[in-house]
Amino acid sequence: MTNITTQHPFGNEITLDILLNDFQKSKAWEEKYRQLIQLSRKLPALPNELKTSEKEIKGCENKVWLGVELNSDGKYHVYGDSDGRIVKGLLTIILTAVENKTAQEIADIDMLAIFEQLGLANQISQSRTDGVNAIIARLKSLTSQY
C-alpha cells in the first residue's frame, strides 16, 4: 500500500508517453530545462523523517533520497526527493519510468535510452549523468533485495 506521505503523480497521472510528447515539442535546451524545473515542482517534498542517510544516494552532486515500497501485488512504489531543482526534475523522469513496476521490469528498463528519447542525454553535465547512473544503480539494488 502506497504511503500517503510519499505519493506523487509520476507513473500514474504523468506517464512516459506524456513526457515524451512534451519534451519532443521542446527544441531548445532552455525549454527542456524549464520542463525539468516544472516537473520538479510536481514532486512533493519528502518529510524530513524520510530524508535519512540510508535513503541518501552517494555520488550525486546534489543531495538525493530514494526509497521503495513493495506493494502486495509485487509492484513497487518508488519515491524520492532532491535539494537541486534539475536533479529533482531528472528524478521525476526516473520515477515515471519505474513506478508500479515489478523488480524484473525495473531491471529491464534502459533509463539512459529514455533520457536519449527525451533529448536530455547530451544536455546534462557529466556530473549529473553520473548522479543519474547512481540513482538508477541504487534503485535496481533496492528492488532486487526483495
Rank of each mutant, 00 (worst) to 15 (best):
T2K: 13
Q7T: 14
Q7V: 13
H8A: 08
F10G: 09
F10Y: 08
F10K: 04
G11K: 05
G11S: 06
N12V: 14
I14N: 07
I14F: 01
L16Q: 13
L19I: 00
F23H: 05
K25H: 11
A28H: 11
A28C: 06
W29L: 11
W29I: 13
E30R: 08
E31F: 08
Y33H: 13
Q35P: 02
I37S: 00
I37K: 07
S40L: 04
R41E: 13
P44Q: 11
P44M: 11
N48R: 12
N48K: 15
E49M: 11
L50Q: 14
K51N: 09
K51G: 07
T52Q: 04
S53L: 12
K55C: 09
K55H: 15
E56A: 12
E56M: 13
N62C: 13
W65F: 07
W65R: 00
L66D: 01
L66K: 03
E69S: 15
E69Q: 15
E69L: 12
L70D: 08
D83F: 02
I86L: 07
V87I: 12
K88A: 00
G89P: 00
L91E: 02
L95A: 05
A97C: 13
V98Y: 03
I106D: 00
I106R: 06
I106W: 08
A107F: 09
D110V: 02
I114P: 04
F115L: 09
Q117K: 15
S127Y: 02
T129S: 02
I135R: 00
R138M: 10
T143P: 03
T143K: 07
T143F: 08
S144P: 04
